[in-house]
Nucleic acid binder design. Structure first.
Lengths: 229, 229
DNA sequence: CAGGTTAATATGTCTATACATAATAGCCGC
DNA sequence: GCGGCTATTATGTATAGACATATTAACCTG
């Protein structure tokens, strides 16, 4: 076969065969050694291509059992979690920021439960603006034990969002996307009607076993989070 | 150095150095050959580890310029795009489905523009239920030219969602997540108040250059799309 | 025939080596 | 100093060969 030469080309060829049903969902494909011979490349090259496809969800691979085409081509969209200021700048607007609250306080039960902490936490609220118009409300609870130096930080000048990204990197977390009606307070801050549909992002992040922060972002009406598949 | 033995261990070691600031954001890390010597492994092993970290966003790599720690560890959350029935079953509920509309019609301007088509399209509306309670409204426009056999499909029995996943795989698409107030019709279907905040997912998918379908999913109040980072 | 042991097999990974490629640094002529 | 050529360098990729490991199929044995 006058076939592919690099692993990307092998990947493309395999993908083409999956897409045009020469290798239908659920079917087994030839083993790496055979494919390598057919394509005229080394097995390592085929391996690289098939591993990439497996990672992307197109193939299921198991030792000894071989490789088969995934039953449900589970497509994944990747959302990047940007710095809010960078997101606003990227959309061509002038970012702004206003701190509303900065205090130690007892978190509400859902927040305490999400973080697995009981004591008081640093509570921060802020509004981010784009071209002077309200863009998103940031409501955040920070575990001070996980963020050394946070008591000295000046959150009037720099948002907690940015401070934490630079100073307290996290290892993992979870995120929930939802819709919620604007409270009276939120409506006033976002210049919209109470009860308006707001897009919300709620994140909890950890450094190893130590919880760092819980944050809820409430975007103004009209906002959409976009990405490619 | 009595170091790592496999590429995963190399990856873990590098990640540890990034996280504890031995290699701070923006700094250059040693080249592959040096790391290989230090770790006592082959360069290919280091390369495998660093490529994985670069793909995950921890490192920026450029030929000749070397490898440096990413300035903003741009974290990515991957949303899986599941079959709705599978999503409901996965949550432990009994899935149901009711077809509301199936007809050829002229799409509204935003839909026609998103697909880049002008003629009439197949319009489908349906409600998916979980334990007999309304879960999500599916409003879909399909390009019949991109879905051969769709005129014979029985969408009273199988949802268009599933039919398309099995019969018209897509190569790429885009997705927008947002919040919207429930229309009167939506409120009736979802058993909620008009104006309630609904979480919406709008997708456009393509097979190569050919548009396949535009779909908007409107989830009932209380729904949250969750994922890990 | 049940249950456990062994052999076969496909993927997973590491190695050493080689060459390709992108991007830069430095040199040179003017 | 400027423009362009060239050498250098780090990553990107391919290769053959080897061994590891998970899993299953085949085979024994009681």
């Amino acid at each position: 076969m006058s076939g592919p030469k690099g692993w990307q080309e092998v990947q493309d060829e395999v993908l083409a065969r999956i897409r045009d049903r020469r290798w239908p969902p659920g079917s087994a494909i030839p083993n790496e050694a055979d494919l390598a011979r057919d394509f005229g490349v080394a097995r390592a090259t085929v391996n690289r291509a098939l591993q990439a496809l497996a990672e992307a969800g197109w193939l299921d691979r198991r030792r000894r059992a071989g490789t088969r085409v995934a039953l449900h081509p589970v497509r994944r969209a990747t959302l990047s979690i940007p710095i809010i200021r960078a997101e606003i700048e990227g959309a061509g607007h002038v970012p702004g920021y206003r701190l509303l609250r900065q205090e130690m306080a007892q978190p509400p039960a859902p927040v305490a439960a999400a973080l697995g902490l009981t004591g008081p936490l640093l509570h921060l609220s802020a509004v981010h603006t784009a071209d002077k118009r309200p863009f998103v409300i940031e409501d955040r609870w920070v575990n001070p034990a996980a963020a050394p130096g946070i008591r000295e930080a000046d959150f009037a000048a720099q948002s907690a969002n940015e401070w934490l990204i630079v100073n307290a990197p996290f290892s993992h977390g979870d995120i929930a996307l939802a819709a919620a009606p604007a409270t009276v307070e939120e409506a006033a801050l976002l210049a919209c009607a109470p009860g308006a549909a707001l897009f919300t992002v709620t994140r909890t992040t950890w450094a190893g076993a130590q919880p760092i922060t819980w944050v809820r972002l409430a975007y103004g009406p009209g906002y959409a989070m976009k990405t490619a598949l």
